[in-house]
Design a protein around this nucleic acid. Structure first.
Lengths: 239, 239
DNA sequence: CCTCAAGACGAACGGCGTTCGTGGCAAACA
DNA sequence: TGTTTGCCACGAACGCCGTTCGTCTTGAGG
């Protein structure tokens, strides 16, 4: 049945407010919500469009392509992170806290951190964070050449960790189990696998299976971070 | 025109050797060749099949899915890497050399190293390398708990670096320029970008733009590696 | 009231990983 | 030797994906 033409005496109220106008902000926000809820791999232009009750082609008026959308989401998340003003005596702690905050904020938005591995981020907030870490290290006495590369390596550490973390969450998501039993299951499986390797070829792996498998993602990250900072610290006194 | 039936007096020689029988090895080798030539993103099941003069469905008799194919290629490349028997006095140098060899071998096969970021590798050669590094560190006096996590972090470092490297090569590939001019161009562009940031908000980035941009991928990798090893070394004496 | 640029969007293109069902062939069995 | 049986090859298709083209709508400026 075809819709009748509206009676002319009824004021045709504009049906606009039902569908809030499409803007870049709205698109980025929607993308961020999807990544946070279902992970980076689940983000597609089509899904963003669907969530906004439109077709995928409509997005391209506000966003150049998927890559740009990802960078915009990434930048939006980075905005949550603050960097302290340098206190030279406390440079190591400040650096540690800053990177841990990055790690924590990024991981609280799914695996969005992976983005900085696929594109070299150049947005305002990436620059702000880079500037902040560089300042902390240089004021703390880290040689500038070292500090510059350290910024790069620390960013990589955070990003790679987000990637690794995304593996487990995606596997867990598709397994249907709740997080705790899944993690427990996986741990015991991997530990068993290592422990049952042929001990004559793998004496160390079989012996230290627990040490390989047990530490949580957070412990691993902190330890890797501390190793890096310790390495930096070794260059402060002698220079 | 339909082919005539072959005259019965001609010995019908089996046309087999023209198309060497499909095996897993052949598939993996072909995949490895494609990754080495065009990069990981260019590898598709369809392309492998095409290179073998068949359809994509044929591959699934020998390989469970794309992920398994990637792991098999990765394992095949790892086979080229040897790990030395531990000499406790030289643990740091041995570790450094081993990781550098990993980095170098993996990078000589395109960006195949990225695979270990997307799946936790569990193949024979991954185990062999893990065992080797663990042995070197523990015999050198690194506390086992630390050594176990270090294996993980070092693997991540190599993988993430392969990922980062793949960005530049893919961009360079699509730009059509030769490697050197592309790298030179990109360096000056990034350095200019950093140097021309508003200096009151970014005093350090503008001042140390050269230090941020100049070091080559190889220098960055070695430096990050050395920082990690230095961090490890700090734990050897005191334990 | 007309013009015209910009946003919205349906449809389609070419690609992807994977599955289904069929067909043929060679080895195992009778 | 004749028959069965199980495996491998493969064409076709499904349901995704990012992106583009051309058309339509709409609202602001002249």
């Amino acid at each position: 049945m075809e819709p009748l033409p509206a009676p002319p005496w009824r004021k045709t109220r504009t049906p606009k407010p039902v569908k809030p106008q499409l803007t870049q902000d709205l698109i980025v926000e929607t993308g961020q919500r999807i990544v946070g809820r279902e992970g980076l791999d689940a983000l597609s232009m089509r899904k963003v469009a669907q969530e906004l009750d439109t077709g995928p082609a409509s997005l391209y008026a506000h966003v150049a392509n998927k890559e740009e959308l990802l960078e915009l989401i990434y930048e939006r998340v980075l905005a949550e992170i603050e960097v302290p003003a340098p206190e030279p005596e406390r440079w190591a702690e400040q650096l540690r806290e800053t990177v841990l905050t990055m790690h924590q904020v990024l991981n609280s938005h799914g695996d969005i951190g992976r983005v900085s591995l696929a594109n070299v981020p150049m947005g305002a907030n990436s620059m702000r964070l880079g500037e902040g870490m560089l300042a902390i290290m240089i004021e703390g006495g880290v040689p500038p050449r070292l500090a510059a590369i350290a910024v790069d390596r620390l960013g990589m550490l955070v990003a790679a960790d987000a990637y690794e973390g995304s593996l487990y969450t995606s596997q867990q998501r598709s397994s249907g189990m709740d997080v705790e039993t899944f993690v427990a299951d996986m741990f015991t499986q991997m530990e068993d696998y290592l422990r049952n390797l042929p001990p004559e070829r793998f004496p160390y792996l079989t012996r230290y299976a627990a040490e390989m498998v047990r530490p949580s993602g957070e412990e691993r990250f902190e330890l890797g971070l501390d190793l890096l900072i310790a390495g930096l610290a070794a260059h402060v006194r002698s220079d």
